[in-house]
């Protein structure tokens, strides 16, 4: 099936059993809401255009609190608006899926593809001690599998999961197979605030804890879950890293462009490779650290000003030089530009 990335997000959500979408339109992800507006009623679901991003994320909070799968989607400026709600969802230990089809920033920025929300997504989208899982697809096919994974991971760990895409992935069409996702065993939602005919105590979904001792305990318990996520849910991909001297570290759409550059470098006799984090949080620290034993230099390639560079330095204990190449503001780097940087790092072009 040939589909647009944005539509695949919607279809994968429906196939994951999600029946509730709350959003507010913004380029370049609006086709997603358009798709769901058509499809959700046909499967007995609801696609609602809220009055604002803030309203949409709070509707998602309420819907997930009742135990239903619900998600929201936006692009960069809209995701910033959702940040308060996302922190509340974390504080309430609710599962939730958030899609960010990134565009250039800061401010209203532009509408072309970017990856300049990396730090926002992986470090501190909302206030408080918090993390959430961030998945970065590089292919339309991967959107289909990761979107399904996002709902499962959210339910298993009672945490928001963000699908961090970009305008190009959202807009492009590629063949997609929705059957590729592996099945997971999901826990029962015993905590859900839903009807029970007075057969049990009321469940309360809340993020307010006035007593610091109690609040600290909730945070510590959550960080125990984060530890589990870091142990069990790291995803990454590698290409020709085995004998690489120069290893590119890149994610999402940029990683596939970098892959083309790696192939071109290999043809020129330069031993280049590519390491692609698929989970941006949890970050594949151990795997990168192991690579640092083998490669001579790292090159981070992103569509931003180098937001992932520090993560690579920390993961590798700065044992190897980490250089950066990127374009920002909505410009997609070309394989040639990346290749030129690889050649420069290799001691200049022939």
């Amino acid at each position: 099936m040939l589909m647009k990335g944005n539509e695949v997000i919607g279809e994968a959500a429906i196939r994951a059993g999600c029946r509730y979408f709350f959003g507010y339109p913004i380029t370049p992800q609006t086709e997603l809401a358009e798709y769901l507006a058509k499809k959700m009623p046909k499967v007995g679901g609801l696609c609602l255009q809220a009055e604002s991003e803030v309203a949409a994320i709070n509707m998602v909070l309420g819907c997930n609190a009742s135990g239903e799968r619900a998600f929201t989607s936006s692009s960069s400026p809209g995701v910033s608006l959702k940040s308060e709600g996302i922190s509340y969802i974390i504080g309430s230990d609710l599962p939730c899926v958030i899609v960010n089809v990134q565009r250039g920033g800061p401010g209203l920025g532009g509408i072309q593809p970017a990856q300049s929300d990396y730090l926002q997504a992986t470090k501190a989208l909302g206030h408080g001690d918090q993390h959430f899982i961030v998945l970065a697809p590089a292919y339309v096919q991967e959107i289909a599998t990761l979107m399904g994974e996002a709902f499962d991971l959210a339910d298993i760990y009672r945490t928001p999961v963000m699908l961090l895409a970009d305008g190009a992935l959202g807009q492009m069409m590629e063949p997609v197979d929705f059957e590729a996702k592996k099945q997971r065993t999901l826990p029962e939602k015993t905590w859900a605030a839903c009807g029970h005919g007075n057969k049990r105590e009321h469940n309360v979904v809340n993020s307010l804890y006035i007593s610091p001792e109690v609040l600290e305990q909730t945070v510590l318990a959550r960080f125990e879950r984060y530890k589990l996520i870091e142990e069990k849910e790291v995803m990454y991909d590698g290409y020709m890293t085995e004998d690489a001297d120069i290893c590119i570290v890149s994610y999402g759409i940029t990683a596939r462009i970098a892959k083309t550059a790696v192939k071109a470098a290999r043809e020129k006799g330069i031993k280049a490779g590519l390491f692609r984090p698929i989970t941006l949080w949890p970050y594949p620290k151990k795997q990168l650290s192991a690579l640092a034993d083998k490669v001579k230099k790292f090159l981070v390639v992103e569509m931003n000003m180098g937001q992932m560079v520090d993560d690579v330095k920390v993961a590798t204990d700065c044992r190897r030089p980490v250089e950066f190449f990127g374009r920002t503001g909505g410009i997609i780097p070309t394989p040639d530009e990346i290749l030129a940087k690889i050649e420069e790092m290799n001691g200049g072009a022939d």
Binding site: V140, A168, Q171
Partner: peptide, 10 residues
């Protein structure tokens, strides 16, 4: 293997 990417925006 195929891909289709439109210019989009205004």
């Amino acid at each position: 293997n195929v891909s289709w990417l439109p210019s989009y925006g205004p």
